[in-house]
Design a binder for these strands. Structure first.
Lengths: 129, 129
DNA sequence: CATACTATGTGCATTTTGTCAAGAGTAGAA
DNA sequence: TTCTACTCTTGACAAAATGCACATAGTATG
């Protein structure tokens, strides 16, 4: 039988890899509504350069499905095809708050790792055993 | 046949999700050789609790395939079945160094995100637009 | 018309995670 | 002995995320 590990009753959520795309998008939309293409540009400022556009558009649509953002077609077309403008919902605003907590946890984890590394490098002079 | 795709030549994939399991394992093995089960325990100190054992063992096997660690069966069996003891290689030591750089980058990204968030929360008093 | 740039999307193969189950060894209780 | 609990590792499969090629479409320039 199994019955090992922590007895999982209701919550099955374990720790996943730290995700930053969704939090970053939510944050940018917290500043102001925007369409995917411009978000793509703004992401570079956070070090999220060179990611495939399809990922951003996909993430936006997924978040709309979850009700974190809503989209409307921009009436005034600047240049190019019509663009879909996303804006944050109240729910999305809450979710963003939760994401920041997750990010803080992640930062703590990374800090502990880096601290341990530099510590051990000083003591052991870089030798691995 | 448009042959598009922002014409970058090299395989330049950047990390979107922050990975911490492998760096953590390498770091622990930088301290001393160990077997999977004990690594599983030690990971809790870094906040990596409640993850499935299979993930740790899988990560270890993958890293061995890449030559970052090597494993031998422990001759002296303490209690229980034979256990596979992993130790870091010189290559793994280098990789660990590279991982720390990646972690620092990730940390910077998270910092920028959190800073932007708190900054904007102060100014805008929590209103999302 | 051809080309280039803006803008959004789909489809699919591959890779990475997450979960579950099970196998195998030892120690101690019944 | 047999049963149970604990240690330790592995395999198989499902679910999710990612990478990439391709499709579509408007506007502007030459």
């Amino acid at each position: 039988m199994r019955r090992r590990g922590r007895g999982r009753g209701g919550r099955g959520r374990a720790r996943r890899a730290v995700r930053i795309l969704e939090p970053a998008l939510l944050l940018l939309l917290h500043y102001r509504p925007a369409h995917g293409y411009s978000l793509l540009e703004q992401l570079k400022e956070f070090g999220l350069g060179d990611l495939d556009p399809s990922m951003v558009y996909r993430a936006l649509r997924d978040m709309e499905e979850k009700g974190w953002v809503i989209s409307t077609w921009d009436e005034k077309q600047a240049q190019g095809p019509p663009r879909r403008v996303y804006r944050l919902t109240a729910l999305g605003d809450e979710v963003l708050g939760g994401h920041t907590q997750g990010l803080q946890q992640a930062r703590g984890m990374i800090d502990r790792l880096l601290d341990a590394y530099s510590h051990h490098m000083e003591e052991g002079e870089g030798e691995y055993h």
